[in-house]
């Protein structure tokens, strides 16, 4: 069954076409990786899926429903969870409170109902020791973890991860991959934008390549990484 379908989605800022005629579908429980050079329109693609940016043309269906014109809040409640490439914590709330907001509002539950789940997510993402510290005081790495933790707290059906592995040590990266894998194992569908390819390919089963807002390839990781177009455009390798 399809959880997410983009049909001929386009978006321009003036003369700059950031998304051009993008179509793809994601099956329930699938994990899809999105790669492409800087400025290819990867984060814009996420903003279109979450509703932070509205499409100029085309249609977006989520969980069997047309959400093209719905706002970010409605899409979150429908089950779209996301992380921001540049972390956007609630600075003056504690790390734990950041999760409680997401848990209580994102899944329309009371605070007491989500306490345990939020605390467990903090443990799972390694933020347990910082639970009662203000989010504004976290390091970049911890902010990225908080992004993931907060998205998980909304109990998403579809999780959009935007470059969460950048700048991590090898050990931290392995931990992160384990966390994402365990989330995926619970049946959550994932779309993951990432430059750290080995982390990405250890989770996703398909890769989508964006360049200048266009899909230039979609398929199994091996097939994509070996295709001539991708190696030229994305990896900058002359073949």
């Amino acid at each position: 069954m399809t959880i997410l379908a983009l049909k001929n989605v386009s978006k321009s800022y003036g003369a700059l076409k950031v998304t051009q005629d993008v179509s793809f579908t994601l099956e329930k429980g699938e994990a899809l990786g999105v790669i492409g050079p800087n400025g290819a329109g990867k984060s814009t693609l996420f903003n279109l899926i979450t509703g932070n940016v509205l499409v100029d043309a085309g249609q977006i269906e989520f969980d069997g429903r047309d959400v093209t014109r719905e706002n970010p809040m409605a899409r979150c409640l429908a089950g779209v969870g996301r992380t921001f490439q540049i972390p956007q914590p609630f600075d003056k709330l504690t790390v734990f409170e950041n999760l409680v907001v997401a848990g209580a509002f994102g899944s329309s539950a009371s605070e007491s109902d989500v306490t345990g789940r939020c605390a467990d997510i903090l443990e799972q993402t390694g933020l347990g020791p910082r639970a009662n510290d203000l989010a504004g005081g976290l390091s970049l790495l911890q902010r990225k973890r908080l992004e993931l933790a907060r998205a998980l707290a909304t109990q998403p059906k579809l999780l959009l991860l935007d470059e969460i592995a950048g700048g991590l040590t090898e050990g931290e990266c392995v931990q992160l991959v384990d966390t994402v894998k365990s989330v995926h194992a619970t049946g959550v569908s994932i779309v993951w934008i990432e430059h750290v390819l080995h982390a990405l390919t250890s989770v996703v089963t398909r890769l989508l390549v964006l360049d200048f807002g266009k899909v230039i390839g979609i398929g199994e990781p091996d097939e994509i990484m070996n295709s001539k177009a991708v190696r030229e455009i994305y990896l900058g390798i002359d073949v």
Partner: peptide
């Protein structure tokens, strides 16, 4: 922006 993204 983040508040809207988590359903507020």
């Amino acid at each position: 922006v983040a508040a809207r993204a988590v359903g507020v």
